[in-house]
Design a protein around this nucleic acid. Structure first.
Lengths: 189, 189
DNA sequence: ATTTTCAACCTCAAATTTGAGTAAACAGTT
DNA sequence: AACTGTTTACTCAAATTTGAGGTTGAAAAT
């Protein structure tokens, strides 16, 4: 969710420019949890700057002279406060995460069944890939990472494993068609 | 995610007015998966109406005469097409769901540790409640629900159980302080 | 009999995200 | 030497969500 939290958190490690943040996310395989578009990133940086949570420190002239120069930002004292507040806020949100398949399921009988099955199988594929990726990363880096990041990996892994089992059940019922049956007798669904 | 999908899906069952949708969500305990504010709901209905996916059928005069009258909508043929498209789109999204704790974890060492621990415990509480609620609902209604809805419940349950175990591990490390330790030796985290 | 609360309804500005661009430099290919 | 693709770096309108508010009438509490 909060892109601002991400920005401030990364700025705690060192001064950065927006694009650096983008790269760091990739480098750490954080795109799984932090699904941020460029737009939101630059927007968040702008906001943080306006509210005084970060400040521009340096403008680096890029190699070619017509290229836009990157502005490097630093977190301020106010920013450190903001960070603590946002952490509290976010840790306090008890909303269940939104899963696309989960929220599509109650309506799935209105779908094109063949197509839906194909989608579910793609989901399972993606899920399995995520699992092996997380296992690999854990092997490689677990020793060197701060505990928070380790638990991030373990969390993704654990949730993905549960997701996998569940998807397999759903797919089984999609295959035998039961998933798409109109209804048992019932009054309210 | 897609509020529009929700609206169309519910309109497939019968004609409805926006507030009816709101109530149905509550009645079915769907607020867990569909976390919709009033604003988005009315906005989505408006959009769907403008694009011709639903149409107003009837305007019911509410009891007192100064109260706003509710407009009842019906799904159109175009709406049914839209629904199928949105289902496909949504089922095709393989993004990992956003969990507030998950994305706060890598930065948690910058938090107020006592407060953070308290938050984590609240999370665990909420998670447990969700689990017992889902178990109860399953007991009561599993027989009468369409399969899609059953799998929705089972999914929430399965994911929440995994979440619970994971949270317990995290809390254990928050208690002994290891979670907040600055870092093991490493270069990149 | 009057105040308080609650459920039914809805609105709207401001914040944020999405999606689709732009443009320059470099690396590799034909 | 001209093409194609990729990385760096950013922009912007349009779509959507958020958060907070507003009105009426009926029911409950004082």
């Amino acid at each position: 969710m909060s892109v601002k939290l991400l920005v401030l958190g990364l700025m705690m490690e060192r001064d950065r420019h927006p694009y650096d943040i983008r790269q760091t996310i990739k480098a750490r395989n954080w795109h799984v949890t932090f699904n941020v578009r460029d737009g939101s990133l630059y927007y968040a940086v702008d906001q943080l700057c306006q509210e005084g949570s970060i400040e521009a420190v340096e403008i680096v002239q890029a190699p070619g002279q017509n290229r836009p120069d990157k502005t490097i930002y630093r977190i301020t004292d106010k920013g450190r406060e903001t960070l603590v507040k946002m952490l509290n806020k976010q840790l306090g949100e008890t909303a269940f995460p939104q899963h696309p398949v989960l929220s599509a399921l109650p309506f799935i009988r209105n779908s094109d069944h063949t197509e839906a099955l194909r989608c579910l199988e793609t989901q399972l594929e993606a899920c399995k890939e995520r699992i092996s990726m997380m296992e690999a990363v854990q092997q490689l880096k677990a020793g060197t990472l701060p505990r928070g990041s380790v638990h991030l990996l373990r969390g993704i892994l654990k949730l993905s494993l549960a997701e996998k089992e569940w998807l397999e059940e759903v797919i089984a019922e999609a295959k035998n068609g039961r998933l798409f049956e109109p209804k048992p007798p019932s009054p309210d669904s």
